[in-house]
Simulated scan of single mutants.
Amino acid sequence: MKEMLDKKKVVVGMSGGVDSTVAAYKLKELGYEVIGINMKLWKEEKFEDEQFENDGGCCSLSSVNDARRVCSKLDIPFYVVNFKEIFKKKVVDYFVDDYQNGRTPNPCIACNKFIKFDALLRKAHELGAYYVATGHYAKIEYDNNINRYLVKKSNEDKKDQTYAIYNLTQEQLKHTLMPLGDFNSKDDVRKIANSFDFSMSKKKDSQEICFVPDDDYSGFVERYIDKKFTKGNFIDLKGKILGKHNGIINYTIGQRKGLGITFGKPTYVIDINSKTNEITLGDNEGVFKKNLIANEFNSIYYDKIEGELEVYAKIRYSAKLTKCIISVIEEDKIKVTFMSPVRAITPGQAVVFYKGEYMIGGATIERSF
């Protein structure tokens, strides 16, 4: 099958937003045969109604229409492909399961791994396209010295999205294009959008999780599993009961506001134990940790890591890079020791590693200590 793929043909995941639109525009300008595909993803029934459609949702009715319109202006084919079943299984079910177990999931990372660079890539191959492309701000290059595809930070540091694609495989990177990585600013991207579609250039960036457009995560999970989360105990570091919480799904590590309980001093969530239904509270110092264990480690830069490796890491998309040492303790499990304490290391989130301008891999945080 792959021998029949055309290296000048690319499928672009069209969300109806500025970034994917300009990605398609840029690739056509570079001489590629571009096909636009909008991915129909699973969405809760209450948000299928038009009254809940919003301008920022990547799979709303208005966004599908926007994607269709710009593809017409670009004179490229446009298709809507149903990925509801796999999205529900790989993204929504995972999201709900993590929250039930006291973790804080990152569904966008799961969507990249299983939908945009797997299911969509397979669809691209079915259409004879060698590549899939998205509007991510990142760069992919091949290093002949080490015979590996590498991921490099975007020119626009504030928009850099390498954190969200740490789990891509060499095979996926081989068939992926990210034309926005070379832009120096989002303003430059909007200028291109404005040149052929004024209304598109004014669209706001999508912020919310696409299948929870009202941002009510706890309400969504409770509706999804048809069960209310039970109240449990707030405890201190010594196990003393401090009061009652409203269900572990309503809290995350490092949280201070919205606890529903006051102590006359700043108090933070230190730990969440889903097995005992207890949430540990403490002062700000208790939120800082120097070590973590992470699983499902994916290395992009190195074929294999042996011994200790000194790199920089961040534990969430917006976090600052912190110097650390990583060591592999099992096949896909690593220990990370930071040179200085890091605030609110959160199970379920990703820890992603960097070496200079290169993102070298990452893993899912299991616990901190």
Rank of each mutant, 00 (worst) to 15 (best):
R367E: 10
T346K: 01
G282W: 11
H125Q: 10
K89W: 03
E331V: 03
D187S: 15
E310S: 13
F198K: 15
K8N: 15
I293C: 02
S218H: 10
L242R: 00
Y163D: 01
K9G: 00
D75V: 12
D93N: 12
G135E: 03
E50P: 02
E156V: 07
V212K: 00
C58D: 09
S274H: 09
R223L: 08
T267C: 10
W42Q: 00
N291V: 09
V22W: 01
G356V: 06
S63I: 01
E296L: 11
A24K: 08
I300A: 02
D236H: 02
Y217I: 14
H125V: 00
I305F: 04
D118V: 00
K186P: 10
I293G: 03
L242M: 14
S60K: 00
T276Q: 08
K2S: 11
V10Q: 10
P266D: 06
K204I: 13
Y25T: 09
I115V: 05
Q255D: 06
Y166E: 04
A319N: 11
N184H: 12
N82H: 05
I76V: 13
S218T: 13
I192D: 11
D216N: 09
L61K: 14
A164C: 12
L173K: 02
K231Q: 06
I241R: 12
T230F: 08
V336G: 07
L168M: 12
I279L: 05
A24W: 08
T322E: 15
N101T: 06
V151S: 00
E308P: 00
K139S: 12
D143E: 13
I293L: 08
F87R: 00
L27H: 10
A164F: 13
I235G: 04
I305K: 05
A133H: 04
I146M: 03
Q161G: 07
M200G: 10
N54E: 13
T267W: 11
F95T: 14
V269C: 03
L150Y: 03
Q349C: 09
Y142H: 04
D157P: 02
A138Y: 13
N106V: 13
V336T: 06
N145F: 06
D143G: 09
